[in-house]
């Protein structure tokens, strides 16, 4: 089963490329011309998202530098032991909606310090693997089309993250504890 999954992930990209290009040739699409026409927009899109990305990334990096995450963590630690959640995974829960690279950094820390056999490493792995960085997705996708009034989108993203955290704890407790 896992071998099959790894095989799928290795072959996904090659199959997609072969498929799209072959279909294009068969349908007599001038693939080189169409490719370059489409690719032209790449620069425009990347430049368009810069202002939105700057706003969000500066805000998030200030928040991280302020030490607020450590403060929140220290308040929540006593609560966690009740639910059999290792305290080392707490910063991860807070940071994972904010910054993808930071979440991966915290996860590598936990994995390297506590080792492969610890429950914390397994829980952290499931948490990181099962989520996407909500704020980054929000800035890039809405920024690309110039949306500034986001309505309930952020609330949905963060609530789904919270549900993800809770289910990660429950599932890991059931499988690994």
């Amino acid at each position: 089963m896992t071998k099959l999954l790894n095989l799928i992930s290795l072959w996904a990209l090659p199959v997609l490329l072969i498929g799209v290009l072959t279909l294009g040739i068969c349908k007599k699409v001038p693939i080189y011309e169409e490719f370059t026409k489409g690719a032209k927009d790449g620069f425009k899109v990347a430049v368009n998202i810069i202002p939105y990305l700057v706003a969000i990334v500066v805000g998030i990096s200030m928040f991280r530098a302020s030490g607020a995450i450590e403060n929140i963590a220290s308040v929540l630690v006593p609560l966690l032991s009740k639910f059999n959640i290792p305290a080392d995974t707490l910063p991860l829960m807070i940071v994972r909606s904010l910054s993808g690279s930071a979440a991966l950094g915290v996860f590598s820390d936990v994995a390297n310090n506590l080792g492969p056999d610890s429950y914390a490493t397994k829980l952290a792995a499931v948490m990181v693997g099962s989520s996407e960085t909500t704020f980054y997705v929000l800035a890039v996708y809405f920024g690309a089309v110039g949306i500034s009034k986001i309505r309930y989108a952020l609330i949905v993203g963060l609530l789904a993250d919270l549900i993800g955290i809770i289910s990660a704890v429950l599932v890991c407790n059931w499988l690994f504890a």
Binding site: V20, L21, E34, G38, A39, G42
Partner: peptide
Amino acid sequence: VAFSLIGIMAFWLGIMRIAEKS
């Protein structure tokens, strides 16, 4: 981050255009 997206974005938008036209 935005600049590192340019090349990737251009490539996939190109592929996407072929997928659309075919």
